[in-house]
Design a protein around this nucleic acid. Sequence first.
DNA 1: GACCAGGCACATC
DNA 2: GATGTGCATGGT
Length: 212
Amino acid sequence: MSPLMSIYRMLFDAFGPQGWWPGDSPFEVAVGAILTQNTNWQNVNRAIKNLKDAHCLSPRTLYEIPEGELAILIKPSGYFNIKAVRLKAFVAFIINQYDGSLMNMVAEDTESLRNKLLSVRGIGMETADSILLYALNKPVFVIDAYTKRILSRHGIISEGAGYQECQALFHQQLVHEVPLFNEYHALFVKLGKHYCKSKPQCNGCPLQGQRF
DNA sequence: GACCAGGCACATC
DNA sequence: GATGTGCATGGT
């Protein structure tokens, strides 16, 4: 079994299924992916609740609401001025190129779709891949700060490894299945939140002392 | 009060 | 291509 598959087994045995992504619709998932950039999920939830309460959680309503009003609604998620611009760019993209519906993306080739998402201001690799995996069910592995930290601490990647390099490892070592990629990334976040912080709390960590 | 959180774009070298 | 900086709220 590949090292990354071994790690997956250990994490799944320790934590069980994570039930990601929290969200009622693919569009909500995509909005959450932008709002959660460098931000605690709890704060994102508050912002999403504000959008729901204001009946603004659709491409069309987000497209039409003034940027300043949008910024106020998403304030709890932090970086609210920047994220308002980013959400605006994203819904303009959906409306102009996909007739206002995220689901019109699913038929498209994953690689070209990823490149188009990356061309939207405010959507980088992690956000694009989160949208592809969690909103559109494409088998793309999501790399984040936790993933890199955990892998480098266990000697699997170097500390300065890049996103693509890291992602390639997962794509090489795992079968490309959406449920596996979905659960695995969520398990890394779980592990990172509880144990593999900037100050490691290795006591009780299911990967404690493991080399791969 | 410091530090951190499910990044990204942009400037500068 | 690598490095540094601004963006901002809420929890620990």
